[in-house]
């Protein structure tokens, strides 16, 4: 092994520069989601962050991680399974007094228009509008995979600013979906 692959200072500098407290990239399991959640809570408790902000960061992290996992497990089948499962990422960063929770995963192009329409609708609503939509969605039945269709609305309600997202070109079948929530 060459010394350059062992030298992590560049990676460390980049993590510091971006304010990244924690990140996970790769296949999510439920136990990984639990463990990282525990770690971020311990970290935030040690920095004396207010209880409400701590629970908001934790809540947004859980919704993002479970969304990534649920979406990928719904798509997973056939030879692309490893690639899809490995595409998930969640990042928790600190930007001065704010916390930024971001997630990403491969997204089937056919799913993109509905997701974009949903996100744009959420971005256009104020807190009262989001609450009304949340209550309406709360009454819809739970789907068998366990998803509630409430996760993005819940994140939008907690966010200090509208949800930000990006779709990056990957190949004919997939785009890469990135989502960013500021607390």
């Amino acid at each position: 092994m060459s010394t350059s692959t062992l030298d992590l200072t560049r990676l460390q500098d980049e993590l510091r520069y971006q304010g990244i407290l924690m990140s996970f990239s790769g296949p999510f399991s439920h136990s990984i989601i639990e463990e990282l959640g525990k770690a971020i809570r311990h970290h935030l408790e040690s920095t004396q962050v207010a209880g409400s902000a701590l629970m908001d960061v934790f809540a947004v992290y859980i919704e993002q991680a479970q969304n990534v996992r649920n979406y990928i497990s719904r798509l997973e089948s056939g030879p692309e399974q490893t690639r899809l499962a490995g595409s998930g990422i969640v990042v928790i960063a600190q930007d001065e007094q704010r916390y930024v929770i971001s997630s990403g995963n491969l997204l089937d192009r056919t799913d993109a228009p509905a997701l974009v329409a949903h996100l744009e609708r959420l971005r256009s609503l104020d807190k009262a509008g989001l609450k009304a939509l949340y209550k309406e969605q709360m009454r819809q039945p739970l789907n068998p995979q366990g998803g509630a269709g409430l996760g993005l609305i819940c994140m939008a309600r907690k966010g200090a600013a509208p949800l930000e997202y990006a779709l990056g070109d990957v190949d004919e079948r997939y785009v890469f979906f990135s989502l960013r929530v500021v607390i």
Binding site: M55, A59, L142
Partner: peptide, 13 residues
């Protein structure tokens, strides 16, 4: 409860 994720919220309702 200290925390309910979105699907647990629906179940609780």
């Amino acid at each position: 409860v200290r925390y309910l994720n979105s699907s647990s919220t629906k179940v609780m309702l």
